[in-house]
């Protein structure tokens, strides 16, 4: 029986990068323990989860909503859902964190849609000309000890490795919440081209991220 990984040693997936700076804040053992404690209504477990995941949820929500206050509300809603529906969260090492990320993103997109803010968002992006920007630089090495830093570095690298035209549509679709038709309108290309670029980009991302899909933050 293999020994359980320590709390600060990332789970090595097959084909994972040989060099992964930093160390994860959560081990599979600790993540499963968090899940069990949350299910047992342990408020301290909730505080630990918030501490680890909130910076990433805020980054994603602010990118989607362009509103720090609303991003905080989305994060709070996501944790409320997790707390109230912990029984639905997959009880596997990466299940809890992935579930929180997906829940928060879905809440943010729901807000965009329900408030019909896509038009505003689109106008905002046009006004600021952000669609051509590269992704933000990966965080500095002094952040290496932060939970999730190594995952961020890997994802960031995978995104930067995409051809520019694919990276742009991924950025607009996934990180700014625009629909295919809006992206096509913004970039002046057919919707079919947007879909093709997205499909190709996500195929590459799946391959690039496959080594870390079982990682822990």
């Amino acid at each position: 029986m293999p020994a359980a990984p320590s709390d600060f040693s990332p789970q090595q997936g097959k084909g994972s990068p040989s060099v992964r700076p930093g160390a994860p804040a959560l081990s599979p053992t600790r993540t499963l323990s968090l899940h069990a404690r949350l299910a047992a209504r342990d408020e301290q477990a909730l505080a630990e989860l918030i501490e680890v995941v909130t910076p990433w949820l805020l980054g994603m929500a602010q990118a989607l909503l362009s509103d720090p206050d609303e991003a905080e509300e989305v994060v709070q809603e996501a944790f409320t859902i997790v707390w109230n529906r912990i029984g639905q969260v997959p009880n596997e090492p990466r299940g809890l964190l992935a579930w929180v990320l997906r829940t928060a993103r879905n809440r943010a997109i729901d807000r965009l849609r329900s408030r019909k803010r896509r038009l505003w968002k689109f106008a905002h992006l046009v006004a600021t000309g952000m669609d051509g920007e590269p992704f933000a630089e990966a965080e500095e090495p002094n952040e290496a000890g932060a939970p999730g830093w190594h995952v961020h570095q890997t994802v960031h690298a995978a995104l930067e490795a995409l051809p520019r035209e694919q990276r742009v549509v991924v950025r607009l679709a996934y990180f700014h919440g625009l629909t295919h038709s809006r992206i096509a309108e913004r970039l002046g290309i057919p919707v079919g081209t947007v879909k093709t670029r997205l499909r190709l980009a996500f195929d590459k991302l799946r391959h690039a991220l496959a080594p870390i899909k079982d990682w822990i933050v």
Binding site: T54, G59, M60, Q62, A104, A158, F175, L209, K213
Partner: peptide, 15 residues
């Protein structure tokens, strides 16, 4: 599942 960590492609924001 494959894209589960993709949201972490953006920089984190300090609370």
């Amino acid at each position: 599942r494959d894209l589960a960590w993709l949201p972490m492609g953006v920089a984190s924001v300090a609370p």
